[in-house]
Amino acid sequence: MLYARTRGMAVWAVTLAGTALVAWWCAEWLIDTSRFGGAAGRVPVVSMAPLLAAAAVVGSLHVHGREIEETAARRQWLWRAGQIVLGTAVSAAVLAATVLLDAAQFGAVAMARNVIGCVGLAALASVLLGARLSWLPLMLYATTVYLSAPRQAQGATIAWAWPTQPGPEPAAWAAAIALFLVGSAACSWLGPRAPLGDE
C-alpha cells in the first residue's frame, strides 16, 4: 500500500475512468454522424484517448516521497515494470471496450495497440523529462502524426504513422510493440528522471 500511496495511482484510476467515458461518447457520436464516414471517423478517438491513458500510466510513476523509495529494501525496477505492464493492460482493456463496434477497423484492436505504443513512448520520455512531463513528446508526436499522416499510408509510412492506422496493420503493431518494449525497459531500469527541485 505504501507503494501505491507514494505515487498517483488514484489519479491514474480517475483519469482512466474519465477518458473512457469521453472516448465512448465521442466514438458513438462520430460513428452515428454520417459526415464522418462510419468507423473511420473514430480515428481522433483511437489516436488521442490512448495519449491521455498513457500520460496517466507513466505520470503515476512520479514518486511523492523519493527518500522513502530510496530506503526501500526491494528492487524498484521490478515494481516499476509491474506498474507499467499492469497499467497498460488495464488501460488497453478499458479503452478497447469503448469502441467494440467494428473492432477490427478503427475500434478495439487499434485502441489497444495505440495504448501500448503510447505508454512505451511516454515511458521513454519520462527517463529524459520526468514522469510529470512525459506526456509532452507524446502529445507532439501524436498530434503531428494525426495532422500529417496520409489516410492511405503505405510502406514505411505505416510504421511512423502507427497511431492512425487500422487495427490489424502488422507494421503499426510492430512499431507500437517495439516502442513499448524499449520504453518500458528503459523506464523500469533507470526510472523516471527526478523533478529539477529533487535532483
Results as ranks from 00 to 15, higher is better:
residue 2 L to R: 14
residue 4 A to M: 04
residue 6 T to D: 10
residue 7 R to K: 11
residue 7 R to W: 02
residue 7 R to M: 03
residue 8 G to H: 10
residue 9 M to S: 13
residue 15 T to Q: 09
residue 18 G to N: 07
residue 18 G to L: 15
residue 21 L to A: 13
residue 23 A to H: 04
residue 24 W to V: 07
residue 27 A to M: 02
residue 27 A to W: 01
residue 32 D to N: 10
residue 35 R to P: 05
residue 38 G to L: 11
residue 39 A to C: 13
residue 39 A to S: 15
residue 40 A to Y: 14
residue 42 R to H: 12
residue 44 P to E: 08
residue 44 P to W: 07
residue 47 S to T: 15
residue 47 S to F: 00
residue 48 M to D: 00
residue 50 P to A: 04
residue 58 V to G: 10
residue 58 V to P: 09
residue 59 G to T: 01
residue 60 S to N: 10
residue 62 H to A: 14
residue 62 H to G: 09
residue 65 G to N: 11
residue 66 R to L: 10
residue 71 T to Q: 14
residue 72 A to E: 14
residue 73 A to C: 04
residue 76 Q to T: 13
residue 77 W to E: 12
residue 82 G to T: 00
residue 84 I to N: 02
residue 84 I to Q: 11
residue 85 V to E: 03
residue 89 A to T: 10
residue 90 V to E: 00
residue 91 S to H: 08
residue 93 A to C: 07
residue 93 A to W: 10
residue 94 V to I: 08
residue 95 L to A: 08
residue 98 T to S: 12
residue 99 V to D: 11
residue 102 D to W: 13
residue 103 A to M: 13
residue 104 A to T: 14
residue 105 Q to V: 15
residue 105 Q to G: 15
residue 107 G to S: 11
residue 111 M to F: 06
residue 113 R to P: 09
residue 114 N to A: 05
residue 115 V to G: 09
residue 118 C to P: 01
residue 118 C to Q: 11
residue 119 V to H: 00
residue 122 A to L: 05
residue 123 A to V: 01
residue 127 V to W: 03
residue 128 L to G: 12
residue 129 L to A: 06
residue 130 G to E: 06
residue 131 A to W: 00
residue 132 R to D: 05
residue 133 L to N: 09
residue 135 W to P: 00
residue 136 L to R: 02
residue 137 P to S: 11
residue 138 L to M: 01
residue 142 A to E: 11
residue 143 T to I: 11
residue 143 T to N: 12
residue 145 V to D: 01
residue 146 Y to I: 06
residue 150 P to F: 02
residue 151 R to N: 00
residue 155 G to A: 14
residue 156 A to W: 09
residue 156 A to M: 06
residue 157 T to W: 07
residue 159 A to Y: 08
residue 163 P to G: 08
residue 165 Q to G: 01
residue 175 A to P: 03
residue 176 A to C: 03
residue 180 F to Y: 15
residue 184 S to D: 07
residue 185 A to L: 07
residue 188 S to Y: 02
residue 189 W to I: 15
residue 191 G to V: 01
residue 193 R to D: 06
residue 195 P to Y: 07
residue 196 L to N: 12
residue 198 D to V: 15
residue 199 E to W: 13
